[in-house]
Computed example of a mutant assay.
Amino acid sequence: MPFQPTYDVPAERRAYTLPASEPTEPGHRIGVLILHGFMGSPLSSRPLAEHLNQHGLFVHCPLLPGHGHYPDKLAGAGRRAWLAEAEEAYHVVRSHSDEIFTIGHSMGNILAAHVALKFGGVRGMAMLAPICDVPDRRLRLVRYARFFLPWYYPHKSKRESMQQLVRERVLDFDPTIDFDDPAFQATLPVLSRVPLSGMHEMVSTIEHGRTLWPRLDVPVRIYAGEDDHAAPPANAQQIFAVLPGKDKQLTIYPHAGHELMRPFEPAHEAVWASILNFICSG
């Protein structure tokens, strides 16, 4: 059964399924499985999905357990549940298509690699901002810290990139919020806190990914942003280097960040066009 959140998830952040908009003969139906990343949601890929759907593709994106709301909901969620949800979503796409492509964002690429290796039949993979190592080495310590520190408060970080990430995530959830309003700032510790247990599961998922990349022999297109602080392009370069297949390409976009597929990112037009060409010409 697909994940059913016990907390309120805004409609735009829920899982979505876009049936093929153009009839296709059996044997030629193409399905696309999209998997979002850590602290993300289906919201981030919906415009890209609608673009692909307009070209006759079936597209499905699940909501990963613990996601779709503020990060405190990650408490109790973890790698096994995320992998199980990716497997469930794979079967949804398989039941509606003859050829499957995957699109992963950040940690979602690891889930996509997992289903590709476990079930086979994946025709190609588009990787957006893939990650193979933690952006901050201190994150490796959460496996120990989680036993005596339940929460991480990123808004207290002295790193400007982390403070910016908090602002982006909050405004992404609710663009109407006045982030600098003192009344809202008073609520920020609760809204932005991340359970260390969830962070540990994220780190464990990244470690799991490093066991998958050397075995992932399928056509791959990798897209990375030069200014991505969450998944610096060195991640994409390392993954590209260990992929065993010959049909692989890596593109790093200058002055681009982590959300390569979203309309507010100027690089998105080139990314969308490349992904569509990869799928439809593959």
Rank of each mutant, 00 (worst) to 15 (best):
C61E: 08
C61D: 07
P62N: 14
P62S: 10
P62W: 03
L63T: 01
L63K: 03
L63M: 06
L63D: 03
L64R: 02
L64M: 07
L64I: 11
P65L: 05
P65W: 00
P65H: 03
P65A: 05
G66K: 05
G66H: 03
G66I: 00
G66V: 00
H67K: 12
H67S: 13
H67G: 09
H67M: 10
G68Q: 05
G68W: 01
G68R: 02
H69M: 15
P71L: 04
P71A: 08
D72Y: 15
D72C: 15
D72A: 11
K73M: 13
L74M: 11
L74R: 02
A75V: 07
A75S: 15
G76D: 14
G76N: 13
G76F: 04
G76E: 11
G76H: 08
A77Y: 04
A77E: 08
A77W: 02
A77F: 02
A77P: 09
A77C: 15
G78T: 12
G78Y: 01
R79N: 08
R79Q: 13
R79K: 14
R79G: 04
R80S: 14
R80C: 14
R80H: 13
R80E: 12
R80F: 09
R80N: 14
A81V: 04
A81I: 03
A81W: 00
A81Q: 10
W82C: 04
W82M: 07
L83M: 11
L83V: 06
A84V: 01
A84E: 11
A84T: 04
A84W: 04
E85K: 04
E85N: 05
E85Q: 10
A86D: 08
A86T: 02
A86R: 03
A86E: 06
A86N: 10
E87T: 02
E87D: 11
E87I: 00
E87Q: 12
E88A: 15
A89C: 09
A89K: 01
A89Y: 00
Y90D: 10
Y90P: 12
Y90T: 09
Y90K: 13
Y90R: 10
H91P: 10
H91R: 13
H91F: 07
H91G: 13
V92R: 07
V92F: 01
V92C: 08
V93P: 06
V93T: 09
V93F: 00
V93I: 13
V93Y: 01
V93K: 03
R94D: 08
R94T: 15
R94H: 12
R94A: 10
S95G: 13
S95K: 15
S95V: 00
S95C: 15
H96Q: 11
H96Y: 06
S97P: 07
S97C: 09
E99K: 14
E99Y: 11
I100M: 05
I100R: 02
I100Y: 02
F101S: 07
F101Y: 12
T102C: 12
T102L: 12
I103W: 06
I103H: 07
I103Q: 08
I103L: 13
I103T: 06
G104D: 12
H105K: 12
H105S: 14
S106K: 07
M107K: 06
M107T: 08
M107A: 14
M107C: 10
M107D: 04
